[in-house]
């Protein structure tokens, strides 16, 4: 449920490091807590995001949650597919349900994130 090759934030985002870039999505735990995702609001390519700050929102029928950037940098790609089919976030949170790709301005920020074990621990403790 929490792939070992990803880094995790306390706000329930994951990031997959791909060179100087990071692919970002929400975790299995986050999608399960939200329930059926009905809408996702994402930034545009070219927008700057800052670690720990909101870059968009994700909505279920009866709730809405902010999405927080795990690292700072420029948004270089946005998953158009997930905007049209938000159910991908529920079905495949670590695959086709990814949200954005960030060109990291400070890869050192990755050190502030958790590995899969630490994240799983955090989720268990609630």
């Amino acid at each position: 449920m929490y792939p070992a090759d990803l880094k995790y934030s306390k706000d329930h985002e994951w990031i997959r490091v791909e060179g100087n870039r990071g692919r970002v999505g929400i975790t299995h735990y986050a999608q399960e807590t939200l329930g059926d995702v009905v809408y996702v609001d994402l930034p545009r390519a070219g927008d700057m995001v800052k670690a720990g700050e909101s870059f968009g929102t994700v909505e279920s029928v009866k709730s809405v949650s902010d999405l927080y950037a795990p690292v700072s940098g420029e948004v270089v790609e946005v998953n158009r597919e997930v905007m049209d089919h938000p159910d991908l976030i529920n079905k495949d949170p670590y695959g086709s349900g990814w949200l954005i790709i960030i060109e990291m301005s400070d890869p050192g920020e990755l050190d502030n994130l958790m590995d899969a074990l630490a994240y799983e621990e955090m989720v268990k403790e609630g």
């Binding site: 009905v38 809408y39 909505e59 279920s60 029928v61 009866k62 709730s63 809405v64």
Partner: peptide, 12 residues
């Protein structure tokens, strides 16, 4: 589309 509304989004 109730997530726009006050009872869910409150101050936002």
């Amino acid at each position: 589309l109730q997530a726009r509304e006050q009872h869910i989004r409150r101050e936002k």
